[in-house]
Structures are given as structure tokens and as C-alpha cells.
């Protein structure tokens, strides 16, 4: 097959995100530090939850599909505070 493998960043760059200056999802690192199951890391389709070497989680809100998967799969109370971005901001689909 001659299809070239694209990087995850290239994959995400195919979607448009009108980033708002304030994060619409906030992840509480203190709660995540105690979490061993890490559902968000596998399930987030945008791969926005990244484990750090010191056992924490780094979360970036910018390229988020606003799907809701993370707050539904996360079982820890208070880990994720989830809102839609301010109207007009966030993901903009074209051919979906």
C-alpha cells in the first residue's frame, strides 16, 4: 500500500478549531495523580490527556471536539470540569 502514515498532529490539523482564550475544560491534576485507570488517556479521540513522567496528567483544551467522552468515562468526582466553549468558538466541522 502506498498510503503514507500521518502523524497525530497532522490528523488533528485537518479539523478547524477557533480557540477561545479561556479553557472550556479544566482538569484537576491533584485528582488525576491518584488515578490508576486513566480512562481519558485512551478514550479521548483528540488525545488531549497526556500522562507525565511524574504520574500527573497534562491537559490541553485547544484541539477539542467537545464530544463529552472524557467527563463520561472518568470515574473520579471533581477531576474534570467540563463546559462548552463560549459560543462561536471551538471546533468547526466542514465535511462531517
Amino acid at each position: 500500500m502506498n498510503d503514507h502514515i500521518i502523524s497525530f498532529q497532522e490528523r488533528m490539523d485537518t479539523a478547524e478549531f477557533r480557540v477561545h482564550h479561556q479553557a472550556h475544560i479544566v482538569v484537576d491534576g491533584k485528582v488525576c495523580a491518584d488515578c490508576s485507570t486513566r480512562e481519558c488517556v485512551i478514550a479521548c479521540p483528540a488525545n488531549l490527556f497526556v500522562p507525565t513522567s511524574d504520574g500527573g496528567i497534562v491537559f490541553n483544551y485547544e484541539q477539542c471536539f467537545e464530544c463529552g467522552t472524557c467527563y463520561i468515562v472518568c470515574n473520579r468526582e471533581g477531576a474534570i470540569s467540563w463546559h462548552y466553549p463560549e459560543g462561536g468558538h471551538g471546533v468547526v466541522f466542514r465535511r462531517t
Binding site: M1, N2, D3, I6, E10, R11, M12, T14, A15, P45, A46, F65, C67, G68, T69, I72, F93, R94, R95, T96
Partner: peptide
């Protein structure tokens, strides 16, 4: 599936519940 999608270029990746 592979022969059906071969050579096609990714235009947009998306997700929804």
C-alpha cells in the same frame, strides 16, 4: 476494506458521542 480506501487522503478527522 483496504482496497476500497486505498490511496484516499485524509480530509477531516472528527468525533462525537
Amino acid at each position: 476494506i483496504a482496497p476500497l480506501v486505498q490511496g484516499a487522503e485524509l480530509k477531516e478527522y472528527s468525533a462525537h458521542l
